[in-house]
């Protein structure tokens, strides 16, 4: 790999370069390790008319709606962290008809992403969906939400979903190298298929590490570098959600958010303070520490539970000290054979 493959940049650069108005956006992390730093930047840059195609979302969806970045939502789950009494931006926007929503289940949603990732045009899904309003009520996807085909082998009815290939995917991971090889662990959810279905990918990570470190544990790589457009080092990039090995959910901050955003106006005020008035993630963290001290963040740090080191191993070489173990010949003997069997003159 040469230096042209270095994809390291700031989130600000990455979002301005790779997220366009009208794009279909997939925040790929599944309820966990939400790429909040990238989401905040998308809102700060006031991207418009996005289709949020997300397997499941928590506050990042509310923020994107509150920031008037989103006009369509395709999802299986929107977390109501504030409980039943909490009326959120999604309800308000649906009532005001500023967004449209299409409901799937987690499985049918990830099946659309997987079909897109595999380069297929559709994917069969489990047939429970057919008995429910998820199948019957259709909005954004219309006729193409689901179809029923006949299995060519068994003749049985099979519900299928279309492939989905979002324009841009955003994800937060533990670590990546400068080429974009992204390593992720904890709860895998729908991240892999969500990310591989996208046309462009922005990866934020807690740490950019040496390529050598990635090679020692390739099974942790969820997205290969050649699919990634931007790598951004952003410690606490998923705060207030959690990231295995780094930090736990900041429950206090999430409850504080829910308690402070009960109306559209209150949400705008919250976003002004925590998103628009902040230059970047560093500024957000400084502001947090200024308001609440470092203590809540320190409380979030997780205990150590180290993965066992395994031996990936690499082989002994064929040639050692001028002797080839593969054919049991000295170099001298070998060169004699080369002279004997060679076909062309040098």
């Amino acid at each position: 790999m040469n230096s042209e493959n270095n994809k390291v940049m700031t989130i600000k650069e990455a979002v301005s370069k790779f997220v366009k108005d009208g794009d279909m956006l997939n925040p790929c992390n599944f309820v966990y390790a939400i790429p909040f730093a990238i989401v905040h930047e998308i809102i700060r840059q006031r991207k418009k008319n996005l289709t949020l195609a997300s397997n499941a979302f928590i506050e990042e969806g509310d923020l994107l709606i509150g920031g008037e970045c989103v006009s369509k939502i395709i999802t299986a789950y929107s977390h109501r962290g504030g409980g039943r009494r909490y009326k959120n931006e999604l309800d308000r926007a649906l009532r005001a008809k500023t967004v449209e929503i299409e409901d799937y289940s987690n499985f049918t949603m990830v099946s659309m992403f997987k079909a897109g990732a595999l380069g297929y045009t559709y994917m069969p899904v489990m047939n429970a969906i057919k008995e429910t309003d998820i199948f019957r009520i259709r909005t954004i996807m219309g006729e193409n939400k689901f179809k029923i085909i006949k299995c060519p082998f068994t003749g049985k009815e099979s519900v299928v979903v279309p492939a989905l290939n979002p324009d841009v995917g955003i994800l937060h991971v533990q670590r990546a190298d400068k080429y974009g090889n992204a390593q992720f662990w904890g709860s895998l959810g729908t991240l892999k298929w969500g990310a591989l279905s996208c046309k462009k990918l922005i990866v934020s990570c807690e740490e950019i590490v040496d390529h050598e470190k990635i090679k020692r544990s390739p099974f942790l790589t969820v997205v290969p570098g050649f699919r990634v457009n931007a790598v951004c080092e952003e410690p606490w990039g998923a705060h207030p959600s959690e990231l295995a090995g780094y930090y736990d959910v900041d429950n206090g901050f999430r409850a504080f958010y829910f308690a402070q955003t009960l109306s559209k106006l209150a949400n705008q005020k919250w976003m002004q303070e925590w998103i628009y008035d902040r230059k970047d993630r560093k500024d957000y963290l400084d502001h947090y520490i200024e308001r609440f001290s470092k203590k809540p963040l320190e409380r979030c740090k997780v205990n150590e539970y180290l993965s066992d080191q395994i031996n990936m191993g690499y082989k002994k070489k064929y040639w050692q000290n001028d002797f080839c173990h593969k054919i049991a010949q000295t170099r001298e003997e070998y060169l004699e054979k080369v002279e004997k069997y060679g076909e062309l003159e040098l």
């Binding site: 789950y77 929107s78 109501r80 309800d91 649906l94 289940s105 049918t108 047939n127 998820i134």
Partner: peptide, 27 residues
């Protein structure tokens, strides 16, 4: 998925979380 009308037409209508994994697990 929703209490009230699917399109949240009335003040009393509101969204629940959606299916998540429930559809296929229950099925």
């Amino acid at each position: 998925t929703v209490v009230g009308d699917y399109y949240i037409s009335n003040r009393s209508d509101f969204r629940l979380s959606g299916s998540g994994g429930a559809n296929e697990f229950a099925g």
